[in-house]
Amino acid sequence: MSDNESDDDVRTDGSGSGIVAPDDETPSWSERKQRTQGLSRLTYEYFERGRREDQDLRQQSDYVERDVLAFPAWPHEMMRNLALTSFFVGMILFVAAALPPEMPNPANSGVTPAIILPDWYLYWSFGLLKLGPLNPDLAILGGQKIMADRTYGVLANVVVVGFVAIVPFLNKGSARRPVEQPFWAAVGMSGVVFSLTIAALSIKNLIPMDSHLLFDLTFLVPIVSATITYAVLKTMREGYMFTLNRRYYRLRPPK
């Protein structure tokens, strides 16, 4: 800007006051608060507190400028991922060329196929629909079931997805590694194994095994694998792996 120009001149070249208010013109949170009442006032009050808290934390911390603990998505992660992209897309094209899909007969409501199946990734959900035997019946209702088996199956889906959704609110704390939280790692393993066994249950007519045995195994195998996971992780925490990780654990002792 030329220097013979007065400051109150309206500038339109994007220097000076464009649409971004310069710092000294931006009202502070408390100035904004003055003009408001009710909920918006509360909001501003909170903001001011939040700011102050951030500021305090920043001053206390020995980090310079930075206060979140994580590694940056950009550029570390993104670069790595972009490099993997072409490889991955190549893999999709290769598999697609090698294993083209089939085309079954046209839809026919008169002919029920021997096995009705969704795509493999819905087997678990399909399996949950077959939990009829677990549907409790009430003696008061004369052995009648409270709800139809299929309602029960749909409900089972809701329960499973719901449980997965609330995991972050059940398992809190700063532990991250499975060794640090053997219990939740065991829960996870049982979940993974259950998703496989329940998928197997959904295609029970394809599996050469007594269907009652399969039904029992569907629930037993996950429990067994959870137990094994728990035991193994507990051992790792005290034994060989612990020595290996000693340097790490000196810095962050397991709780």
Binding site: M103, N105, A107, P113, G153
Partner: peptide
């Protein structure tokens, strides 16, 4: 196809229940 149709059938039954 046949697979589509019967998968759809399950879908309708699931929604109905």
């Amino acid at each position: 196809s046949q697979l589509s149709y019967w998968a759809g059938q399950i879908g309708v039954e699931m929604s109905l229940s």
